[in-house]
Design a protein around this nucleic acid. Structure first.
Length: 272
DNA sequence: CACAAGAGTAGTGAGACAGC
DNA sequence: GCTGTCTCACTACTCTTGTG
């Protein structure tokens, strides 16, 4: 996945500084030939800093997390595929203690140092969290450490709202995936049967999705005369499978995390 | 094959903004 | 006014690729 971006960043840098020369905001109209060595160094540092900022901005613009927020479909795909980075100890510490004891310290630091920009403010808060965590007692650190270890192997929790949203977006999501698969397989056709408990109705629902059609426009479900009976058989299968699953013992998540809410409740497991 | 370098990802809280 | 989304700068981490 790694690519050589050296030329790209050089080009971006050239274009950017053509439009917005870094020396303008620092030294105004003073020509470069009149710079002192210190000013030249300061300018070089500012340019390097600006390049870093541009790279960060570019990465943010192409960050799937951000893109995922834009549309439900992509967002869902991203949310299904995410998970390569577990929350860090600092994240857990902040999450747990921010409002209780970090916020007022951070606010005070921001006020004293007259930080006004959003970026530097965020950095200050992160800095305060880091410093406070370092000064924390062994007990607190041990707690955070324990939680951190738990989070590493933990699957994301899914509540009913998430499930309903995911079910509603199955069609468009599958469409994107299957269209892509059809493309890279050189035109394979797909028929997907899916079903399960639908929290929005409380019933077991089944859906079908197809890629590929005949000259008449008919997809597999229309082209195959017995498709309805096939779907009925699948519905029965799903119901039986759900009934079987409900007889299995609950998965051990006994080391319950009192902070985690919205866990799947037992009523939603008693399916149709 | 081991290592280094660089690219990509996920997350943080606040504030701005849009839409209802 | 409320709610949800986007943006900001930065870092720790993972993943991929290049090099010796």
């Amino acid at each position: 996945m790694s690519k050589n971006y050296t030329d790209f960043w050089s080009e971006v840098g050239i274009k950017f500084f053509e439009h917005w020369p870094e020396r303008n905001p620092i030294f105004g109209d003073l020509p470069e030939s009149e710079f002192t060595p210190e000013q030249s160094t300061a300018l070089a540092d500012a340019v390097a800093e600006r390049k870093k900022q541009i790279a960060t901005w570019f990465r943010w613009q192409t960050n799937p997390l951000r893109l995922g927020r834009r549309s439900g479909i992509r967002g869902l795909v991203v949310s299904l595929m995410k998970g390569t980075r577990a929350p860090q100890k600092m994240d857990i510490y902040s999450n747990k203690f921010y409002s209780k004891k970090i916020k007022h310290v951070a606010d005070e630091a921001i006020r004293v140092q007259s930080v006004t920009e959003r970026g530097p403010k965020l950095n200050k808060r992160r800095d305060v969290v880091r410093q406070m965590y370092e000064k924390e007692s062994k007990e607190v650190k041990a707690k955070i450490e324990k939680k951190y270890c738990q989070k590493q192997g933990e699957s994301p929790k899914v509540d009913d709202t998430t499930k309903i949203k995911a079910i509603h977006e199955l069609g468009p999501m599958l469409d994107r995936i299957l269209q892509y698969l059809a493309h890279i397989t050189g035109g394979w056709k797909f028929s997907v049967l899916m079903g399960g408990h639908d929290p929005s109705t409380g019933e077991v629902s089944v859906f079908n999705y197809h890629v590929g059609e005949l000259e008449s426009g008919a997809q597999f479900d229309q082209a195959f005369s017995n498709f309805n009976s096939m779907q009925s058989a699948f519905l029965s299968f799903v119901k039986d499978a759900i009934a079987f699953e409900s007889m299995l013992p609950e998965e051990g998540d006994n080391e319950s995390d009192s902070d985690v809410k919205g866990d799947e409740d037992s009523s939603s497991r008693r399916r149709a």
